[in-house]
Computed example of a mutant assay.
Amino acid sequence: MRGLIQRVQFANVQVNGEIVGEIGEGLLLLLGVEKDDDQAKADKLLEKVLKYRVFSDQDGKMNLGLKDTGGGLLVVSQFTLVAETRKGLRPSFSSGASPEHGEKMYDYFVGRAHSLHHDVATGSFGADMKVSLLNDGPVTFNLEV
């Protein structure tokens, strides 16, 4: 399971011109699911996302996680995040989850996020989405479990 987090001042996701998920300050998480991912990996990644220290403390050091700041979390499914890009000029998605497994793991991840954090928004799994954000920093990290 892979997650690309971006510290944002705001972010939203639209489907067919309608905003389906939106947050203020917080983290945008692009979530990629691989075929061998399970609930344990989802739990581990979620814990990392909520606690990863990317927000500044009173001294300007990145020492605070999302749980510390209370910011929003926008979770957007991102199949292309699991692409193999080391060889050639065309991405391979052989390690990616099937749509059924991907949606199951995405739904599990989002459900757990809602149970552990107060401000969670989402995109729509499998939809053609338009994501808008203002990256703060910019601060972007690739997380893998």
Rank of each mutant, 00 (worst) to 15 (best):
L27A: 00
L28R: 08
L29E: 00
L29A: 13
L30K: 00
L30W: 01
L31S: 03
L31K: 02
G32K: 03
E34I: 06
D36A: 03
Q39V: 00
A40K: 15
A40Y: 02
K41L: 12
A42F: 01
A42L: 01
D43C: 08
D43N: 15
D43R: 04
L45M: 10
L46V: 03
K48I: 02
K48G: 02
V49D: 03
L50P: 00
L50M: 04
K51N: 14
Y52L: 10
Y52N: 13
R53V: 03
D57I: 04
G60E: 13
G60Y: 12
K61W: 07
K61L: 14
K61Y: 10
M62I: 06
M62T: 09
N63H: 13
L64C: 05
L64W: 11
G65E: 11
L66Q: 13
L66M: 08
L66T: 05
K67N: 12
D68G: 07
D68L: 09
T69G: 01
G71M: 11
G72C: 12
L73K: 04
L73M: 10
L73A: 04
L74H: 14
V75S: 11
S77L: 06
S77G: 06
Q78L: 05
Q78P: 08
T80V: 13
T80I: 13
L81H: 09
V82D: 05
V82F: 03
V82S: 08
V82E: 08
A83S: 14
T85G: 04
R86A: 12
G88P: 12
G88N: 14
L89S: 14
L89P: 01
L89C: 06
P91V: 14
P91Y: 11
S92F: 09
F93Y: 15
F93R: 07
F93V: 12
S94G: 07
S95M: 09
G96R: 07
A97P: 10
A97K: 07
S98F: 08
P99Y: 04
P99R: 05
P99M: 05
E100C: 03
E100S: 09
H101A: 04
G102C: 08
K104G: 00
K104F: 11
M105F: 05
Y106F: 15
Y106A: 10
D107S: 12
D107M: 10
Y108L: 03
Y108H: 01
F109R: 12
F109N: 10
G111P: 02
G111W: 02
G111A: 06
G111Y: 05
R112Y: 01
H114M: 04
H114R: 15
L116N: 01
L116T: 00
L116A: 04
H117F: 02
H118W: 05
H118V: 00
H118G: 11
D119W: 04
V120S: 02
A121Y: 03
T122F: 09
T122E: 10
T122D: 11
S124P: 00
S124G: 01
F125K: 11
G126K: 07
G126H: 05
A127H: 07
A127V: 08
D128I: 13
D128R: 14
D128K: 14
D128T: 15
M129I: 05
M129F: 04
S132G: 15
L133W: 07
L133F: 12
L133C: 13
L134M: 14
L134V: 14
L134E: 07
L134G: 04
D136Q: 12
D136G: 03
G137Q: 06
G137D: 10
G137I: 09
P138F: 04
V139L: 12
V139R: 07
V139P: 10
V139Y: 10
T140C: 08
F141V: 13
